[in-house]
Write a protein that binds this DNA or RNA. Sequence first.
DNA 1: GGATTCACTTGATTGTGGTCAAGCGGGAAA
DNA 2: TTTCCCGCTTGACCACAATCAAGTGAATCC
Lengths: 238, 238
Amino acid sequence: MTIDDFDINAEALRQLPLFRQLDAQTVTTIADAGRALNVARTARILNRGDNLDGFYVVFAGSLKMYILSCDGAERILRILRTGDSFGEAMMFNGFDSPVFVDALTDSQVAYIPHRLVADVLAQNPVFIESMFRGMSRLLLDFVRDIESCCLMNAKQRTVAYLLRLAEHRGPHDQQVTLPASKWVVASMLNLAPETFSRELHRLQADGLIEIVRRTIHVRDMTGLMEIVDGAAAVSVAT
Amino acid sequence: MTIDDFDINAEALRQLPLFRQLDAQTVTTIADAGRALNVARTARILNRGDNLDGFYVVFAGSLKMYILSCDGAERILRILRTGDSFGEAMMFNGFDSPVFVDALTDSQVAYIPHRLVADVLAQNPVFIESMFRGMSRLLLDFVRDIESCCLMNAKQRTVAYLLRLAEHRGPHDQQVTLPASKWVVASMLNLAPETFSRELHRLQADGLIEIVRRTIHVRDMTGLMEIVDGAAAVSVAT
DNA sequence: GGATTCACTTGATTGTGGTCAAGCGGGAAA
DNA sequence: TTTCCCGCTTGACCACAATCAAGTGAATCC
């Protein structure tokens, strides 16, 4: 659980989507002013209630962003991977973090202070747009999350999740792999692990999928789509 | 349900928080390029699936932002009032709207196109920060929303909502007024109207509150706080 | 190779909150 | 005043998913 910090590698930083459009000079300035951190598996990077005056970018590894109930129940909001960032909202608005962030695997993150961001923003319209796009994406994900946990039942949430994983792959790639343990995935779907397991096996019994450890083979794509089809209305007569 | 559109009043625009820091010249430019709309009660302003190339600002009235399940169940995400804006995320990221927006009362909104925003952003760092603050706030609200509907039960959600209303008022103002019908509030809390009614009356039976139509008199503030206290953990030992 | 552990599965039971249905009461209009 | 209507309340019942608990199976470690 030791955490050591060191200089940011400007070249590595420039590989990340958020910084790709910036010129080398600007990226070097950022790299010099920020700090990179090695975080060990299970270490906490951000606490609920923390106040950030900057934001984090993930260089390597995977992290979980989550909230906790008083009795320790954990609800994972998102899994963060290389190139993802977090903390922008708190940085811009000054409020305390509503979420926790822990490392799921040994990871590397960079911390970039607010003043630096403000300077770069003022001079790089393209960076402004990148930043807005990132936050917009997050907003969309949260709305979908609310949609899924308020409007769908356990079966629909499970299927919707499988389809979302599948859409990142080609339309004919008939297998998807869960990005984390079933326990973690269940938490993202706001399901008890037992319920998630049950739903998957029910889908298997119906011949829609085949489960091989963390890999799910899709046997009947249209069958799956019918289950979530129209779970959220696109438009209605008024 | 007639919708007519007319020029934006630059002075009125400048009264809104988002535009307050801009110089008169810039605001006039925006007002000239954008369009204002009168929308009648129950009229829809934004459909799920719509693609926006700009965003809306509310001048007057109140609107509901919501999602719908296939069987018509409605989940209200937020109530929008004068000064609030919506559609920024879709504008920046280009994706289709995940939400509906309808007028709850006769209202006026202004539509401001993307290209204009991009120009103003590039030249006004202070506007960038305003815009980021607005989206950050929205993000925080959605996280709280997820927290409330995933980590809290019906009673806790009800109490948390009452306390949130109460915190806008002075600490000794012992009464709050629901901002909309109980049906609408229940939808925001992700509760069936019947459940919301039951929870309120249970709190009244316990002597914590007193219900007079849409006004709730708080009789035991600390009692209420105990109910939600620690519903979401702030920090835990690792 | 056997023990241990962890991730997952499966079964039985329960409880919260949703649904259906009927009743109530205040405000508005005739 | 009487009537209607709408927003809300209250009751009875039910279903979905959580919980508790036991069991399985595959990796890992000695």
